[in-house]
Simulated assay, not measured.
Amino acid sequence: MIIVTGATGTLNGATVDHLLKRVPPARVGVSVRDPERAKHLADQGVRVRQGSYDEPAALRHSFADAEQVLLVSSSDATADVVAQHRTAIDAAVAAGARRILYTSAHGTGFDTPYPPLAIHAATEDHLAASGVAWTVLRNGFYGDLGQLLGPWQATGVIAKPADGPFSWVDRRDAAEAAAAILASDSPFDGPVDLTLPSPVTLADFASAASELTGRHVDRIVVDDEKWVADEMANGVPEAAARFTLSMFQATRTGHFARSDSKLSRLLGREPRSVADQLADQIAG
């Protein structure tokens, strides 16, 4: 059985949807905080059990009979996330899982200004020491384009701190690739980088936005401290603004410049480009 955590969330929810196109529902189980939110999966024949990264016994029960367990990274900003991940890994080992997979991030490491990457690195270290086969899905950045780019549709500018090359992948592509790996007869051992074929910059977003809208969209570089001050003036807490700034700082050190073709191979096509993703944003 393939067990997926976080299956009521956006990423792993889409992963389960893609997985059900590849394997019978009787081979799929989900571990979720609130089983009522997974009723649509239970109705399709998926095994639904309650599980939380804070409840080891419940996790072990939800992972029972697993050949593979896909762990989504915790989004609990108030928790000791590394401890949560260790609890989940240990529960999967105790349940007898033959392979554990984890949604990590491209560029993971301890030597980066972007804090989440050290969390992923610590989790990967624990996973590598677990004694079972393991795979980490090092996804490129994904999420809300509005947060990344700001109100460019209204202002005609992308005004952000200096950046560097990075991969902004479509979450739907990341989910489809995860399902392909879970359903594959071939093992994927260790880190798997899931990135665009070539990295992009915010200038590339501005160029694509200009072409899509037929009006010029400027990429304006804002000084780091001025950007933080502007964010705070708009009601963003300083800690949150500096957290986001650290992502831009990490891009401009070349930390995310490396690309890989694995995502394209897993999808059997090119992943959605930044232009494709912007077109979806414009369409609403």
Rank of each mutant, 00 (worst) to 15 (best):
V93N: 06
S246Q: 08
L212N: 01
V228M: 07
L196R: 00
L137R: 08
L117R: 05
W152S: 00
R27S: 13
M247L: 15
P237I: 13
A240F: 11
I2P: 11
L245P: 08
A122Q: 15
A175C: 14
A250L: 13
A154K: 13
A174R: 08
T78E: 14
Y114K: 11
S210A: 00
H216S: 13
L245C: 13
E270I: 02
A83P: 01
L11F: 07
T244D: 07
K39Q: 15
T8N: 06
E124V: 12
A38W: 10
H126M: 09
T195N: 02
S62K: 05
F63W: 03
P161V: 08
L245F: 09
E55Y: 00
L196A: 08
F243H: 15
F205H: 03
T253M: 08
R252A: 03
A241T: 11
D54V: 04
V236K: 09
G6K: 06
L137D: 04
A279C: 01
A206Y: 05
P191Y: 10
W227A: 09
R258I: 10
W227G: 10
S264G: 14
E270D: 14
T5K: 08
I181W: 06
G254W: 03
D65W: 04
P187M: 02
D90Q: 14
L145R: 00
A203Q: 12
P115M: 04
H61P: 00
L182F: 06
A105W: 00
A154S: 15
S167I: 08
T213V: 07
G214P: 09
Q153Y: 02
T251D: 03
K21T: 14
S62Y: 02
D17E: 13
A38N: 09
D76L: 14
K160Y: 01
E124L: 11
V23Q: 07
P199Q: 06
R22D: 06
S104P: 01
F248L: 00
P199R: 10
F188L: 11
F110G: 01
I220D: 05
W168A: 05
V222Q: 09
T213L: 12
K160L: 14
G131F: 11
S130C: 13
L149N: 12
L59Y: 04
G284R: 09
A241D: 03
S167C: 01
V32D: 09
P24M: 13
